[in-house]
């Protein structure tokens, strides 16, 4: 993913900023959100600073109701602990997922397939992989149990693949009804947010489809960067661009060092 501000986006807005803003808008005020490291964290902070101040942020390390003053390096960063409402353990935090208390979760991955299944375990043979990735962690728990899942990945053909090499986290598995048969909770993935577009899932086939393209991006460009045949929503609009206030919050307050949203121009 390019970190250069301005590439392919108008008004000097980075693609990471568009991703963060699109993800923030998925959070409804008052929801309980399970947050991972990186852009999801930026998105969650932005949502709290704008339309969703009452959102409750939960981190798998056991931090509940965080009100972070500065960006954390990860979900275990103790900067998240300062000023939170409950400090507990990992089992408690994850039990909130299985108990049905989590409205929305965010995940990235090395690979995503057309049913929204994710790989964060290995590339190549499982026992003797070409690349050993970090492993599920809470990802499978979030994908299995959160009411809604939002996926955030850079839009590259090697990431949006017909079939993940290892299915770590369930999207819709192999199609309609599969989540229910496996006993999983929640709606499954509702959005895939990339640096080119916002995608959702066809209600009948549960296959990924193009919903909106980011400003300055064509439908063809998105399709060319996707490793499988992408469905198209009945009408494909443009992703609403970040407002001046959203961009200001991201750059001045949430990620002033440009760690996740890209370097300053």
């Amino acid at each position: 993913m390019s970190a250069n501000r301005g590439e392919g986006a108008p008004n000097g807005v980075t693609r990471q900023e568009i991703m963060a803003v699109a993800a923030a808008r998925e959070i409804r005020n008052g929801e309980v959100a399970f947050i991972g490291t990186g852009l999801p964290m930026v998105a969650a902070y932005l949502a709290k600073a704008t339309h969703a101040p009452d959102t409750v942020l939960v981190f798998e390390s056991g931090i509940v109701g965080a009100k972070p003053k500065e960006l954390a390096t990860g979900v275990g960063d103790l900067r998240l602990l300062v000023g939170c409402v409950k400090s507990t353990g990992l089992y408690y935090a994850l039990s909130l997922l299985q108990g049905g208390f989590i409205d929305i979760g965010f995940l990235g991955a090395a690979e995503v397939d057309q049913y929204g299944n994710l790989n964060s375990t290995s590339i190549g043979d499982y026992q003797r992989p070409t690349v050993r990735l970090p492993g599920s962690g809470g990802a499978n728990d979030i994908g299995s149990l959160a009411q809604r899942l939002v996926i955030m990945v850079p839009h590259e053909p090697r990431r949006l693949v017909p079939r993940v090499q290892y299915l770590t986290t369930p999207g819709f598995l192999d199609g309609p009804g599969a989540r229910e048969r496996a006993g999983l909770r929640g709606e499954g993935p509702t959005r895939v947010i990339t640096d080119l577009a916002v995608l959702d899932f066809d209600p009948a086939s549960k296959r990924m489809r193009l919903a909106t393209v980011h400003p300055g991006v064509t439908v063809e460009a998105v399709e060319a960067r996707t490793g499988f045949a992408l469905l198209r929503a009945p009408t494909i609009g443009e992703t609403p661009p970040p407002s001046a206030e959203e961009v200001r919050l991201l750059r001045e307050r949430i990620d002033p060092e440009g760690i996740y949203i890209g370097q300053k121009a």
Binding site: L145, G183, L184
Partner: peptide, 15 residues
Amino acid sequence: PIKPMAGTDLMRTRG
């Protein structure tokens, strides 16, 4: 009894 891991390679691909 737990809910997660069902239907995925965490169940199918064994070590």
